[in-house]
Design a protein around this nucleic acid. Structure first.
Lengths: 336, 336
DNA sequence: CTGAAAGCGCTTACAG
DNA sequence: CTGAAAGCGCTTACAG
C-alpha cells in the first residue's frame, strides 16, 4: 500500500469533474472522447502520478496480460537447457515488455502436471512459453486440451500443435563443418545430441551436407551421440579419440559438451586447436568465459526471445499458430 | 479461455445448492463452515477440476500474491551479477512457490525509474527482490518512499531500509585464504572487487584476517582491485604477476575474474595450480564447467533464494525488516 | 453455520 | 461525446 491519495480512476473523476467512465476512456485513449477532455484528464493523472490498477482492469477484460515461462526445478544443478533457457528468458522479457505483457516464472515439479491448470484456468496467465524437452509432446498435448495458447522453443513436429521458434540447425551444422573444412582439417568428427533430439538431428544433417559438398565421406567412426551434459562431452570425445586417433577436428552439438571434449583432448596430450579443432554450439556465456574461448555457432538469442514473445501474444490474441526459424552465425574464437 | 463449463464459484454453488459465500469459505478452508458441507463442496470442486480465479480473489483481497524480481536489461551480454542473479532467481521461485506467491520478471531500462510505480502502484506486485548494485541506494530510496516492501541480496547498509540477505563474505574470505595457506603457499595475493563494494570489502577483510592469523604480513603489492568482469581478472592478475613474479597463489573475488586470472597465469608460462593456485568466489555454473574446474567459495544459492522469498513475504505481511547472513563453504576442485 | 449484499477497481454495452 | 448501470469473479462484514 502506497501513501498516495489518488489511487483510483474514481479519484481522478472527482478531480476532473467527470464520470469514471470518462476517465477510463480517456486513459485508454478511446476515440469517443473529446480531445480536450482527454488531455485534461491525462494531465491530472500525470500530475498525481496516477497508475491504474491493472488486476482490476484485467479482471474486467478477462485477461491477465501475463505469460508463464515454464521451467523445471534446478535442484540438481544446471544443464545446458537451463543455461540456454535462462539466457533466452531475459530476451523474452524484453520482447513482452513492449507488448504490454508480463513474464511470470512457473516452476513445474517433476511428476506434477497441475501447473497448467493452476496457472491457466485460474486466469493467472494467458499463455505459456517453454523450452523444448524430451517430454515436450506430453506438455503440448496437455496445453492443447486446455485450449491454452503456447509457444515452444524447438523444431516443429506434427504432434505439437502450438507455435514454435527454433534456430536454423541445418545451417548451423553446415557453418560449423565448413569452417573446419576451410581451416584445412582432414578428419572431422561429429559429437551429437540424443538420437531423438530433432535439433541435433538437423545439426548432424548439416554436418553431413557440408562433408558431402566438400567431397568427403561420412564415416560412422567419426560420429557419436551425446546428451548435452558435460560428462557426455568427455566420454564422447574419448570414444572418438579411440576409434580415430588422428582425428583433427570435432563439431560438438553444444558448448557444455565442447568444454568436456576439450578437456579430454588436452588430457590425451593433444593441443586445441593445433592438433584438434573444436567448434561448439549455442554461444552460451561460458563459451566466451571459458578458459579457452570456444568457436561456436551462435543462436540469435535476442531475436529468438523477441519472436517467442511476439508470436505467443499474437497467438493469444488471434489464435494464429506460427512456426519460425531464426538464423544462426559462426563465431570464431580460439578453439578452432 | 478453456472449454470447461464449471469456471466460477457460482457454478459450484449451483451444483452444491449453497450460496457462493459458502463455496468461497469452503474452498478457503474457513473454520466457520460445517465440515460436511465443506467436504461436499471440495469434492465437487475436485471432480470438476475447479480452479478459482486468482486475479479476482486478489482484487478482492487487495493483494497480488506476486513479487517482482528486478533485472537490468541484458543487451550488452552477461556479467557476473547477471549469472549469479540468474541462478538465485530460480531458487527464489521455488521458495515463493510454497508460500503461494508468484515471481514476476521486471526489466528495468537504463535511465528509467518508472518501473517501481508501474508495478507497485498498479497493484501488479506486492514487493520487490533485487540484486545489490552500485546504484542500490537510489532504488532503495525510491522503494522506501513508496512504502513498497523489498529485499535486497547484499550487505546491509544504514541507507538501505529494506530487508537484506547476503553470504558470509568474511568467512568466505577466511576460508579461501586459509585453504591457500594450508596447501603451503607462501605469496598469497588478493584480487578484489570494486572499492565501494561491501561484499568485496568483507572478503578482503577475511583475507587479511586469515593472513594475520597465520602470522603473515599484509602486503599492498599483493592486493589489487577488479570489477567482477572477465577483463579485470586478466589485467588484475597481470599487475600481480608484474609486481610479484613469485606469487604462488591468488584469492579472486569472483569466478568470472578467476577465469581471466587463470588465463593470464597460463599465458605467462606458469601452471595452475602447480605454480599459482587460484581460488574463486560464488561457485557459478562456469566454475564447474570451466576447462579447469575452479576451487571456489560456494554461496548457498538454494538457501539464499529460499530466505529471500520467505523474508520478503514476511515483510509484506507484517512489515518486519530482517537482515540475514547465509553461510558459505569452500569447494575444492582443481585450481587450488 | 449460512446467505444476501456490498465492495475490490476497473470496462463497456446501453441510453441519451 | 458523456454518464449511469451492470458486470468481471471473488471476499467478507453483517444479519440471521
Amino acid at each position: 500500500m502506497g501513501t498516495k491519495t489518488v489511487k483510483t480512476i474514481e479519484d481522478i473523476a472527482k478531480l476532473a469533474n467527470v464520470s469514471k467512465s470518462t476517465v477510463s476512456r480517456a486513459l485508454n485513449d478511446s476515440s469517443l472522447i473529446n480531445p480536450e477532455t482527454k488531455n485534461r484528464i491525462k494531465a491530472i493523472a500525470e500530475e498525481h502520478n496516477f497508475c491504474m490498477n491493472l488486476p482490476a482492469r484485467n479482471l474486467s477484460r478477462r485477461q491477465s496480460c501475463t505469460v508463464g515461462f515454464v521451467t523445471h526445478s534446478h535442484q540438481c544443478g544446471f544443464t545446458v537447457e537451463d543455461m540456454f533457457g535462462l539466457e533466452i528468458m531475459s530476451a523474452i522479457g524484453s520482447g513482452l515488455d513492449v507488448l504490454g505483457y508480463d513474464l511470470l516464472l512457473i516452476h513445474m515439479k517433476p511428476r506434477d502436471n497441475s501447473w497448467a491448470h493452476q496457472y491457466f484456468d485460474s486466469g493467472r496467465v494467458d499463455g505459456f512459453i517453454m523450452m523444448k524437452t524430451g517430454r515436450g509432446h506430453a506438455y503440448s498435448k496437455l496445453l492443447s486440451e486446455m485450449n491454452a495458447p503456447f509457444i515452444i522453443w524447438g523444431v516443429p513436429e506434427p504432434e505439437i500443435n502450438g507455435c514454435t521458434v527454433t534456430g536454423d540447425n541445418l545451417s548451423g551444422g553446415i557453418l560449423a563443418t565448413e569452417h573446419l573444412i576451410r581451416i584445412g582439417r582432414k578428419k572431422i568428427a561429429f559429437l551429437g545430441g540424443p538420437e531423438y533430439d530433432l535439433e541435433a538431428q538437423l545439426r548432424q544433417k548439416g554436418y553431413e551436407t557440408a562433408m558431402r559438398n566438400a567431397g568427403r565421406k561420412i564415416e560412422p567412426d567419426l560420429m557419436v551421440n551425446g546428451d548435452y551434459y558435460l560428462e557426455s562431452g568427455k566420454t564422447g570425445m574419448q570414444q572418438l579419440l579411440e576409434k580415430t586417433p588422428d582425428v583433427d577436428a570435432v563439431f560438438v552439438c553444444g558448448d557444455v559438451m565442447a568444454i568436456g571434449a576439450i578437456e579430454v583432448i588436452q588430457k590425451s596430450g593433444r593441443r586445441v586447436p593445433e592438433d584438434v579443432a573444436v567448434v561448439g554450439y549455442d554461444d552460451l556465456a561460458i563459451a566466451t568465459y571459458n578458459n579457452l574461448p570456444i568457436t561456436t555457432v551462435r543462436q540469435n538469442i535476442q531475436m529468438s526471445g523477441k519472436l517467442l514473445a511476439q508470436n505467443l501474444v499474437q497467438s493469444i490474441k488471434t489464435g494464429v499458430v506460427t512456426h519460425v526459424t531464426v538464423p544462426v552465425e559462426l563465431v570464431v574464437r580460439k578453439s578452432a
